[in-house]
Design a protein around this nucleic acid. Sequence first.
DNA 1: ACTCATCCGGACCGATGGTCCGTTTATGCT
DNA 2: AGCATAAACGGACCATCGGTCCGGATGAGT
Lengths: 219, 219
Amino acid sequence: MTTGAPQPVPLPLAGQRRERGDALANRARILEAARALLAERGVNATTMDAVACAAGVGKGTLFRRFGDRAGLTEALLDDTMRAFQDAFLSGPPPLGPGAPASVRLETFVDELLRLIDTQLELAVAADRAAGAATRMRLHGALALHVRTLVAEIDPSLDAEVVADLLLGAIGARVVHHLRRERDVELAAVQSAARALLRGLTGTRASAPAIPEADAHRTS
Amino acid sequence: MTTGAPQPVPLPLAGQRRERGDALANRARILEAARALLAERGVNATTMDAVACAAGVGKGTLFRRFGDRAGLTEALLDDTMRAFQDAFLSGPPPLGPGAPASVRLETFVDELLRLIDTQLELAVAADRAAGAATRMRLHGALALHVRTLVAEIDPSLDAEVVADLLLGAIGARVVHHLRRERDVELAAVQSAARALLRGLTGTRASAPAIPEADAHRTS
DNA sequence: ACTCATCCGGACCGATGGTCCGTTTATGCT
DNA sequence: AGCATAAACGGACCATCGGTCCGGATGAGT
């Protein structure tokens, strides 16, 4: 996957001096090394030193490129997240626009859980290492989406708060705990999450009709 | 509050050498100092050094008494938690045994949120600093209770997983975020939590028969 | 080939959690 | 009261880790 990235393109563009070739290469190696270390040794045992060393670069390089630990994890999360965001913002219907909000929300939760599961260590790292600013940005995008869907499903709810509670329920820590320390199947987690959602979607939906039609208000 | 603690009693008991008087006093001072620092400076700015200094003891004393940071936070949480546990395990009905499971669960969530809110910084500290072992113990007690209630409410659910998701939803991190960074009222959080619970409690009770809802389940 | 901006790398720094050990002192006994 | 001793004290000390700095190396345009 890492190598599969379509490469941000050398960008033969003008403007000012393009990033030097070795710098580009190093960035890639650092990202790859970080991903590997994170996956095989866990979050706790992955130090910045170790990442730099594994990538075969000096610490200076590492820090200049990414600023700090938060920056690195953010970069790591970046493409994964971007893809997911595109999917639920403008992808095909079950997840993207076009399906009723309740279905979209359910699908969203399902998919987010799957995504977290495939990048468990990374997700936990981001969750704990990211500074307030970074977390806000990452969390913010997801929260906004959930908030919108929740508001659409049941306008009487305090969408902002409900959204945060929901995201908290399926946060990296929880999933990590269930999967790694309890040996729970991912499907079981997804199923339980759906059970929780039923309170928002199912119940109300019994008088379905789907309030759609009236586009999506801009709360 | 701190001073209000009923004192573990001098225990004039026998056995082997009783804990020395100064040791006892120091433990109390450390606990009090830690609580104060945590409350007024936040989790991030509270170092072990600072705690020892504020308590007027050496670091050696601090660490010998509590082992490590996790031990200290655990001790800090201890009596608060013990009281809460007693309340929901053997206290009066709305929370303790005697009321229907769904009501108990709702009350439990309400109360836990209130408790977390009054000890926000401490709760976050415990959440982040506690080692796996400690967290398991603290979380375990709560999780067991919720699990039991959930199982009672709807035996068809995977109580263990649902319980963890629920606790994740109202975890210290989430509450901290909502209360401190979003200025959300505690009541709003409790209300949103109840909305989530509705899926487990209310829905089933009235046998509303969720329509197609789960038709598109594939994964 | 030449020049210069950019980048590299690892020595270095400050903070912080945690350990060690010589010194002090509460406690029980005489 | 005086004493012996185990327990507790306290702060110097250590190791780790995130993050900074700067002299030296190097890629890229001319």
